Every structure is written in structure tokens, then in C-alpha cells.
Simulated assay, not measured.
Amino acid sequence: MLDFIKDDKEKIGDNLRKIRERKKLTQEKLAQIMDVDPQTVYRMESGKYSAETFLAAIYALKVDFEEVLPSRYKHLNEKKNKKDEVIYEIEQLPESKQKFVWDTASVAVDYIKAK
């Protein structure tokens, strides 16, 4: 396995532990919510987990996927947030101006594709 992926799994496990502790849950209580053995939670927090265990933990802890990612992935969410901000601002415009912005953007995209 690539070393940085192993490190990321360990960081994610550590982030899951911090979230569990912040929510004042013991490993045993989280295991009960996840319907797994407490040893599974221990291994998960040590970076040894399957995709199923990871998804069960996110669901049980009621957190967003991005919240548990290592900091080097945070920029992915920032790009998404910037896009959401722009769309929100456009949606606040009167309908006629929204149409102008979307039509202009569409023409720009067609132009770029043609180049």
C-alpha cells in the first residue's frame, strides 16, 4: 500500500476518535450504535478499517465525510463551497439577470470548448 494512503487512514481513524470523544461516546457505545464489536472501533481508530466500517462510523457519528478527512483534502471542499457561493449569489439576482448570467456562461463554455 502507498505510504501516504496508510498515513491518511490513520489520520482518518484519529479524526473519528476525536469526533467520538467530542460527542462523549465510549468505544463500547459507538460499537453498539454501529452494531459491531468494540474491538472493531479500536481497530478503526488505529487506521485499520474497511470501507463498510468507515461508512458505518460516519453514519453513527452523524458527521459529514469531509469532516473526517485529513487537512490536505480540505481544499476539495473549499472549491465546492466557492462554487456554491457563486450559484447562491446568482440565484439572488432578479430572474431576468439570472437568465443573462446563465446564457453568458453557456456561451463562454461553448467558446472554450471550440478552442
Rank of each mutant, 00 (worst) to 15 (best):
Phe54Thr: 12
Glu66Asn: 10
Leu69Ser: 00
Lys62Gly: 14
Ile58Asp: 08
Val86Asp: 04
Gln98Val: 00
Ile58Thr: 11
Ile87Val: 15
Ala57Trp: 03
Ala57Asp: 10
Leu76Gln: 10
Ile58Ala: 07
Leu76Thr: 04
Arg72Thr: 10
Pro70Ile: 03
Tyr73Gly: 05
Lys80Asn: 12
Ile90Thr: 00
Lys74Ser: 14
His75Thr: 07
Tyr88Pro: 02
Ser71Phe: 06
Ser96Cys: 06
Asn81Met: 10
Lys62Thr: 13
Tyr59Leu: 12
Lys82Trp: 10
Glu78Ile: 06
Lys82Glu: 14
Glu85His: 13
Phe65Thr: 12
Lys62Cys: 08
Glu67His: 07
Ala57Cys: 09
Glu78Met: 06
Lys62Gln: 11
Lys80Arg: 12
Leu55His: 12
His75Pro: 01
Val63Tyr: 03
Lys83His: 12
Glu78Pro: 05
Glu89Val: 00
Leu93Gln: 01
Ala56Gln: 15
Lys62Asp: 15
Phe65Met: 05
Val63Leu: 02
Val86Thr: 09
Leu55Ile: 15
Lys79Arg: 11
Val68Leu: 07
Glu95Asp: 12
Gln98Ser: 00
Glu91Ser: 10
Ile58Arg: 02
Lys83Glu: 13
Ile87Gln: 07
Tyr88Leu: 03
Glu85Asp: 12
Phe54Ile: 08
Leu93Tyr: 00
Lys79Phe: 11
Arg72His: 15
Ser71Gln: 15
Asn77Ser: 14
Pro94Arg: 00
Glu95Thr: 11
Leu55Gln: 15
Asp84Gln: 13
Gln92Ser: 09
Ile87Lys: 06
Thr53Phe: 04
Glu95Asn: 06
Glu91Phe: 03
Ser96Asp: 11
Val86Met: 03
Ser96Pro: 03
Ala60Trp: 01
Lys80Thr: 08
Val63Trp: 08
Glu78Ala: 06
Glu67Gly: 03
Leu61Phe: 03
Gln98Ala: 00
Lys80Phe: 07
Val86Gly: 04
Leu61Ile: 05
Phe54Pro: 08
Leu69Asp: 05
Glu78Asp: 11
Glu67Cys: 04
Asn81Cys: 04
Asp84Thr: 05
Thr53Trp: 01
Gln98Pro: 01
Asn77Cys: 05
Lys62Glu: 15
Glu66Pro: 02
Lys82Pro: 08
Lys79Val: 13
Asp84Trp: 09
Leu61Ala: 06
Val86Leu: 15
Phe54Cys: 06
Gln98Leu: 00
Leu93Cys: 02
Glu95Gln: 12
Lys62Trp: 00
Val68Lys: 06
Asp64Ile: 02
Val68Gln: 03
Lys83Ala: 09
Leu69Ala: 01
Ile58Met: 09
Phe54His: 08
Pro70Leu: 01
His75Lys: 11
Lys80Trp: 04
Arg72Ala: 04
Ser96Arg: 13
Arg72Trp: 04
Thr53Ile: 13
Thr53Met: 05
Ala56Asn: 14
Glu78Cys: 04
Phe54Ala: 09
Ala56Phe: 10
Lys79Gly: 08
Leu61Gly: 02
Glu91Val: 00
Asn81Gln: 10
Ile58Gln: 14
Tyr73Leu: 13
Ser71Glu: 15
Thr53His: 07
Pro70Trp: 04
